[in-house]
Simulated scan of single mutants.
Amino acid sequence: MISVLLNKGKEKAVLHQHPWVFSGALQALKTKPQNGELVKVLSQKEEFLAYGYFNDASRVAIRLLSFKEEEIPDENWWRERIKKAVNARTPILNDHNNTCRLIFSESDFLPGLIVDKYGDYLAVQILTTGVEQMKSVILDELQKLTGTKGIFDKGDDKARAHDGLAASEGLLWGELPPDFVQVIENGIKYHINIVEGQKSGFYCDQRENRKILAGFVKGKSVLDCFSYSGGFGLNALANDAKELVAVDSSALAMETLRKNVALNGFDPFKIAPIQNDVNKQLRLFKEENQKFDIVILDPPKYAPSRSALDRAARAYKDLNRLGMQVLESGGLLATFSCSGAVDMETFKQIIAWAALDAGKEVQIIHQFNQPADHPIRSSFPEGEYLKGLLCRVY
């Protein structure tokens, strides 16, 4: 195994078990490893620090796997790590919930691997060269542990490109998922399109937050923005919301939402699906003086990196200002950010700016977080990406 030495003073993060070693931390390589190859990481004094897989195509030159010299990340190591991650999700899966994230990359000590379970099928994202080289082992272990009917590759092309990998999508094992796979979350049925849908087809990271918000909707008019396949909206209908207006720019999202309303036997006259850009639609509602008791804002990632933070902050502020302006006085705003670069304190400040611009007063009555199947590793705070606020707006 090739040894890679770190520059003086660059071992601190590794000693704290952070899983990334950046290229600037490496001494000149005497022998260059192949991309994806397992290497031994040593301090400048040649003391053992960790094992990880190497890739000079990425700014993160080494992704660390094991911090014990006797624990070499061989095939058995990968199988045990996968087994631990999958078994940890057992309490989440039951008759009322058959969808969750089984493996969450660095947060499950498996950098570059994401696996989501959707009923009888798995959606996999293989994002790094090291994981790509272990693909056959990963697929074999996932089959054994889950009894899945099929494993579909939902490769994130941008993330793969960062690691020097070509775009990838398609069936990896078993049978191709049907056009619509049925899953259950919080006792609600969903038809989701794994093959054509966004990301891996369904955002199970909002499961607990949907349940919490559903406790406030009885008899209320609800506006669900960026509704996608109806996660928040269907929970609202299941908990006796008076009416639901769902807005999304995607025709597929609107089609899927209608199917999911029918699948659950909800009253189709209580829902108004609108295909439009959310910001444009909110401005229309404002012009028409249309008001709602509850507004849900769950936009896509506005800040994919810290360099985009200023632009994202302005976008979040404008969106939330518009959302506040279509709320009844005393109504509730459930607002979210899935941008890891936006921490909770920054998000609260953005909401405060939006309130000032909207001429509103805001009380934060609850903070939303990501659920147990999206754990936050103590040595990898970057794994905390989803945050939200439930605000009463006057």
Rank of each mutant, 00 (worst) to 15 (best):
I82F: 00
K84L: 12
K84M: 10
A85R: 02
V86N: 02
V86H: 01
V86P: 00
N87C: 07
R89W: 02
P91E: 08
L93K: 03
N94C: 12
N94T: 09
H96F: 12
H96D: 14
N97V: 03
N98K: 13
T99I: 10
T99P: 07
C100F: 00
R101K: 06
L102E: 01
L102Y: 03
F104D: 05
F104T: 01
S107F: 01
S107E: 07
S107C: 14
S107N: 15
D108I: 03
P111V: 12
G112A: 11
G112P: 04
L113W: 02
L113A: 05
L113G: 06
L113N: 05
L113P: 03
I114S: 01
D116W: 02
Y121A: 05
Q125W: 02
L127F: 01
T128H: 02
T129C: 11
G130C: 07
V131W: 00
V131C: 05
V131P: 01
E132H: 05
M134V: 03
M134W: 13
M134Q: 15
M134A: 08
K135S: 12
K135V: 04
S136Y: 06
S136W: 06
S136D: 14
V137A: 10
V137Q: 05
V137C: 13
I138R: 07
L139I: 15
D140S: 15
D140Y: 04
E141I: 01
E141L: 02
L142Q: 01
L142I: 06
L142W: 02
Q143I: 13
K144M: 05
K144E: 06
K144P: 02
L145I: 06
T146A: 07
K149R: 14
G150K: 08
F152Y: 15
F152P: 00
F152C: 03
D153P: 11
K154E: 00
G155C: 12
G155W: 03
G155L: 09
G155T: 08
D156A: 15
D156L: 06
D157Q: 14
A161D: 10
A161S: 14
A161N: 13
H162Y: 10
G164W: 01
A166E: 12
A166K: 15
A167K: 15
A167H: 08
A167P: 09
S168N: 11
E169W: 00
G170R: 13
L171S: 10
L171E: 04
G174W: 09
P177K: 09
P178V: 11
D179P: 08
F180W: 12
F180G: 07
F180S: 13
V181L: 10
I184M: 13
I184H: 05
I184N: 11
I184T: 15
I184P: 00
E185A: 05
E185Y: 00
N186H: 13
N186G: 13
G187V: 12
G187R: 13
G187P: 09
K189I: 02
Y190F: 15
Y190R: 12
I192V: 14
I192Q: 02
I192G: 03
N193S: 14
I194G: 03
I194E: 00
V195Y: 05
V195M: 12
G197S: 08
S200F: 01
S200T: 15
F202P: 00
